[in-house]
Amino acid sequence: MKKYLALIRSGMVEALVYRTSFVLKIVGNLIYIIIIYYLWKAIFQSSGTGTVAGMTFPQTMVYLVLASSLFAVMEVYLVWGTHNAMQSGQIVSQLIKPVGYRAYNYCPFFGAMIMDFIITFIPTFILVYFLSGGYFDLGINLLWFIISIIIAVNISLSIDYFVSCIVLYTQSVWGLNIVKETIVMLFGGAAIPLAFFPEPLKTIVSYMPFQAIYNAPMMQLLGEAAPQKRLGMLLVQLLWAVVVYAASELFWRRAVKVVTVNGG
């Protein structure tokens, strides 16, 4: 346990070293919020009605801002990291570490995410809360929200891990990474709230693991559901976490055998 904590700590410290990148992240986030605010305001104004697909303008804003902020927190460069480690040959020394490759990479990410969460997500959260005039409750739903985020982080990381395995075969990364990113972003609900998706696309998307990354936490925060229903949503998320984890782990065990390092 101690070694994992040390790795998590290293991730937290590393995140603090790059202070400019934090500032840039916040600035980027702010510009993004401004753009989507005006865009969706115009969209809702043009439609003439206050509610579209069961979503109001403030609800859409809160959803999108927080989902994209979560996206920034969860974004890791595991796929690129694996690719670079393979190209430079460093993957060899990572594979013989006394912790598994997954843990060795995950732990610093967890550390960085904790820092990111505190420094970028929580201020955004507070800002959104006040700007939207206290749109959502600050009660028991926060607990559901936090648990949901923790599961979502694991799903997101497992998907990255899975794609990293493909990279070991193709040895090319840009294309695969962008496919992963766009699919997770679009079908996860970070680009457009899933409520807007027309049928049958909506139903199809609801059976994918991606909605468990952004849509599920947002529903826990913004939706008003009975505890049984919330628990059900959490269990679905958990199921996806286990499935994606297992799939990526099995794939990794096969894929790691094809790793060829040219020197290094």
Partner: peptide, 22 residues
Amino acid sequence: FGMIALNLSGFIAFWVIFKNFP
């Protein structure tokens, strides 16, 4: 194919918006 997927997802997002708003 990555580029095609990137554009396709942009297009889907666009299409979804216009499904809801004329």
